[in-house]
Design a protein around this nucleic acid. Sequence first.
DNA 1: TGCGGATCCCTTTTT
DNA 2: GGGATCCGCA
Length: 665
Amino acid sequence: MPQRPVLPCSDDGSATAADHPGPCIDYHSELNSAQLAAVTHGDGPLLVIAGAGSGKTRTLTYRVARLVEDGTPPETILLLSFTRKASHEMLRRAAGLLDHRCHRVSGGTFHSFANSVLRRHAGAIGFSEGFSIIDRADAEDLIGLIRKEFGTRAESKKLPRKSTLANIFSRSINKELSIEDIIYDDYAHFEHQLGIIETISKIYQQRKREHFFCDYDDLLVYLHQLLSENDAVRQSLSSFYRHILVDEYQDTNLIQAEIIALLAGEHRNVMVVGDDSQSIYAFRGANFKNIISFPERFPGTRVIKLEENYRSLQPILDLTNSVIEEASEKYSKKLFTRRGGGLLPKLVASMGENAQSRYVVEEINRLLKQGVPLDDIAVLFRASFHSFDLELELTRNAIPFVKFGGFRFAESAHVKDILAHLKVLCTPKDRISWYRILLLISKIGPKTAKAIFESIMTQGRGAIGIIDAGPKGKSNLELLRFKNLIDDLVNSSSPLKEKGERILEYYLPILKERYDDHPKRLRDLQQLVTIMERYDRPDTFLADMALEPPNASINGQLATDRENAGKLVLSTVHSAKGLEWHSVFVIWALDGRFPSHHAMDKPEALEEERRLMYVATTRAQENLTITYPTQVYDRITQTVLYNPSRFLERLAYDMVDKDYYNPHG
DNA sequence: TGCGGATCCCTTTTT
DNA sequence: GGGATCCGCA
C-alpha cells in the first residue's frame, strides 16, 4: 500500500492544510462541512449521526489521521468497530492518507478488545487469564450436556432444545433482563418450565467458570465487571486510551454502551458514529436507543449529522428515504444527493422462485454486457437459504460467485473435530472437546469417554494423561492410534501448521468413514491448515477462529480473500452492512419472507425488518432491482404468499418501475 | 455399552 | 433436509 513520507505538518490544522500541500491532508477540500466539523472536533463527547452513504467511514478515517497528525500516539486511540475487517480497512485508508503510524492504532471488535483486556486482567475478577473462548456451537453442546442430566424424568421431556436454551440465556444477558422476563416476553410456551430453565442456566454459568470457558456474552460481561469493580484497572485503561472511537454505535447493546461509558468516563474523549435507521441487531440485544440516549449519558455531547449521500443516484435515494420514512422512532434526518439522473429502481414479480433466479441471471448478463464488472454487482437477501435456487442457476450459467453470511465454516462438524484436537492440548480440562474426539473412536461411547476423561483429570498431567487412560486389557487399535497422536503433539515443538497436518493425517480415515461427501470436507480442512500457517500459537488461532470466523464461501467451501476477487457477491443483508455496489439486487422481497413471518406479530421486530430493508436498498449506487416470487406456499402459516414486501407497497408510482417477469413470454 | 435405523420436530439474521 | 431422540439388536 502507498506510504507517504513523514514530513512535518502544521500543528494548527484548522485552516492551514491548504497552505501545506504534500503529505499534509487538505481536510477542507476533501470533506464537506459536517464531515470537517466531526474530524476537527476537539476534546469531549461527539455523536455523529451518519446517514447511509454519507461518508461515515471517510469521516472516521480522517478523524484517526487527524488525531495522529496532531500528535496523539496512535496506540492510545481505541477504534472499536463491528468487524476486524472494517477496522483494518479504516486503518489502511488512514495510513494511505497520513502514514504507517495509523496501523498502530488499537482496535477491533468489542469482543476481541474484551478478549485482549481479559487475557491480561481476568485475575482481578477471580477468573483465569488462560480461559478459552467457546463459540455458539460449543456453548450449545455444553448446555446440551446439562440438559441431558434432566432427561430421565418425565417432566423434562419437552424441555426446549439446546439451541433455544442458548438463545434464552444470551438474550437475558444482552438485554439485561431476567430469564423470567425473556420467557414471558418471547417464549411464553415454556412458562411452565421456568424453574428448570433457570436451574439449567445457573449450572451452565457454573460449569463455564469451572472450566474457564468464556462464551461470547461472557467476554462482555467480564470486561464490564472488571471495569466497574476494579478501579485500578479501569483507570489504567482509561488513561491509556485517551481517545475512543466507536463505529456502528446503533448496534451496541447496553453492556457495550456501559463499557464505553466506563472507559471514557473521565476524559470523555469519545466519538460514536452510527445511524439509528440502520440498527439491525436487536435480535442479539442491540439497542438502537443507545444512540438516542448517548447525549444523556454524556451531557454536553456535540451532535453532528451527515446528511449528504455520496453513494446513490437520486431515484434510489428517493426509494430508500420512502422506505425509512415510516419508521416509528428515529433521529429525523433527510438524506439528499447531488447525483442526479439514473434509472428508476425496479420492482419485479415472477411466477415462483426459479423464475426469479432466471430473471436475476438474465439481468446480470445484461449488466455485464454494459461493462459493469461482476464484482461490482451484489445479490442481497434476508436469510441465507433464500439464495439456494439462485446459486444453482448461477452455476448452470457459469457465473462465478462468492457468498457471505449464513455459512458457519468454524461450526461445521469436521472443522470442529480438528479444532477439538487442538483444544485439548491447550486446555486439557476441556471436557466437551475430549468427549467430542473420543466419541469419534469406535467402541467408545459416552460411558467410556467419561471414564477416560475422569482418568485424565485424576492424573492431572495434561493431555498426555490419555496414554494411561482407557479400558484395560482389550486392545483398541483406533484408541492406540489416538494415543500416539496426542503423544506426538504434546512432545512436538513444530509450528502450528505441522501440528494441524499431523491431526489431519490422523483424522482422515475417520472423515472418510463418517461422511460420504468427504472429498469436499477434506478441502475445507486443507484450507483450515492453510489458515494455521499465519499463527504460531494454537491459543491465538483458536481465539481468532471463535471471535472472527471466516464467513465467505464458494459452493459451500471456505473462500479466501484472493479467491473472492472478480466474482459476483451473494450476501445476507446483515453481512452486507457497510458495503456498496454499482448494481444491487434484493431478492425474496416477499411479504412473509422479508419481512420474515417471525416478525409479523411483534411491532418492534417489524420495525427492525424495515430497517433491514433500508440497509439492503441503500447498498446500491446506480442500479437497484428488487424482486419477489409470487405463488409461494408457506408451510408454517399454511398460506400462499404473493404480496411484495409491505415496506415497498406504498411506494408512489413515479418511484419505481413495476414489472412482471415471465420467462416463457 | 455401542450402534444403526426409524420417527419426530423445526426451518433468520451474528459476535 | 437435518437434528434430536428412541428403540432394538449385537
